[in-house]
Design a protein around this nucleic acid. Structure first.
Length: 359
DNA sequence: TAGACGTGGCG
DNA sequence: TCGCCAAGTCT
């Protein structure tokens, strides 16, 4: 594919491409207002790639406030990447519990075990090949830990650039234009500070709602602010209408309070998670009774709703009180619902069933 | 490539 | 209360 002509990129923007002067102004602001974060090297000090990597993985789609205690606990328990590489899977997963996106923890450990042997790659390209390290994280580590003039684009950067340039399309749909804008203002001598400065600006001044334009160091470089419409950017992609799904779930309860569960297939929604028996989720499910795990005195326990990213689900819940010796059907087992590791939608259904008065 | 993947905080 | 959001990656 041919490289895009500058005009093609610029055509996405109602404002001009940012200049190197804008990048320098941002760094001047950063030198005074930078956030003091535990994974950040002091000014003039060399960054530890392990700490940068660990923090960047934890910060994916996760707030600084949520990460702080986990970062401290991990660093205390596994001070170097070799320590983490030698850890057992279960203890790392347990230490990650509560942070969310658990694939990150699995990739973290896999990555540590690679790095423990060969060390951290010192280039963006090399970093990009590590498990759990994508376009953003590879660029961030390369810039912050190794001083590579990588173009770092995260959600903060997208927002800042969208406002600076009055970007006409949603940033993710105008990826090349965003990168071109960042590159145009990137100070080659301080790429790591520049990346962190963009993120600090996005997190503290150029916020999603109610941006503090009056105290922004880039106010006079910002096309959106000049038009008094910073909050109108970035342009949002139109929300797709959510599908409407229905389902039925069946909760047999033994006298000791255990309920019947099974494990979902590894792939697909809630892959590998524990669930209660029930129907597939679809626009129509037909007769709920067709999906019961076994014949019993099923009683309607009402319904629950749950919103997924792309579907609104309503589930009719049924309960049956069964004998202690009731056998679990193939694939199922009896579990204490409080300790079964149920995802939220399943917890809702079980809670609904158990809230029903017995008998 | 659009969708899945977790959780807690905020207006 | 509830939708939106927060330093994305993988398939």
């Amino acid at each position: 594919m041919l490289p895009e002509a500058p005009g093609e990129v610029g055509a996405e923007m109602a404002g001009p491409l940012p200049s190197p002067a804008t990048g320098r102004a941002l760094l001047a602001w950063y030198d005074v207002h930078r956030r003091d974060l535990p994974w950040r090297a002091a000014p003039g000090e060399v960054s530890d790639p392990y700490r940068v990597w660990l923090s960047e993985i934890m910060l994916q789609q996760t707030t600084v406030a949520a990460v702080r205690s986990y970062y401290a606990a991990f660093l205390d328990r596994w001070p170097r990447v070799n320590d983490l590489a030698a850890a057992e899977d279960g203890e790392v997963m347990a230490a990650w519990a509560g942070l969310g996106y658990y694939a990150r923890a699995r990739n973290l450990l896999a990555c540590a075990r690679v790095v423990a042997v060969s060390g951290f790659p010192a280039t963006r390209e090399g970093l990009r090949a590590l498990p759990g390290v994508g376009d953003y994280t590879s660029a961030a580590i390369a810039a912050i830990a190794f001083g590579e003039p990588a173009v770092v684009v995260d959600g903060n950067v997208e927002r800042v650039v969208a406002r600076l340039t009055r970007l006409a399309r949603p940033p993710k749909a105008a990826r090349r234009a965003v990168e071109a804008a960042v590159e145009a203002m990137l100070p080659a001598d301080r790429p790591g500070d520049f990346a962190q400065a963009m993120m600090d600006l996005g997190a503290t001044i150029c916020t999603p709602k109610s941006p503090a334009c009056a105290i922004c160091p880039l106010l006079h470089d910002c096309a959106a602010a000049r038009h008094g419409e910073a909050a109108a950017y970035p342009v949002k992609a139109p929300k797709k209408a959510r599908a409407v799904w229905r389902g039925a779930m069946f909760v047999p309860v033994r006298p000791d309070g255990t309920v019947l569960v099974r494990r979902r297939p590894e792939r697909g929604m809630l892959g590998g998670m524990v669930e209660v028996f029930g129907s597939p989720w679809a626009a129509e499910i037909g007769d709920a009774a067709d999906h019961a795990p076994f014949a019993a005195a099923w009683t309607a326990a009402g319904s629950i709703t749950h919103t997924f990213t792309h579907a609104d689900l309503t589930v009719d819940v049924f309960r049956a009180d069964v004998a202690a010796e009731t056998a679990a059907p193939a694939g199922g087992w009896w579990a204490d619902p409080a300790a079964a590791g149920l995802p939220t939608v399943m917890k809702k259904a079980v809670t609904r069933a158990l809230a029903m008065a017995e008998g």
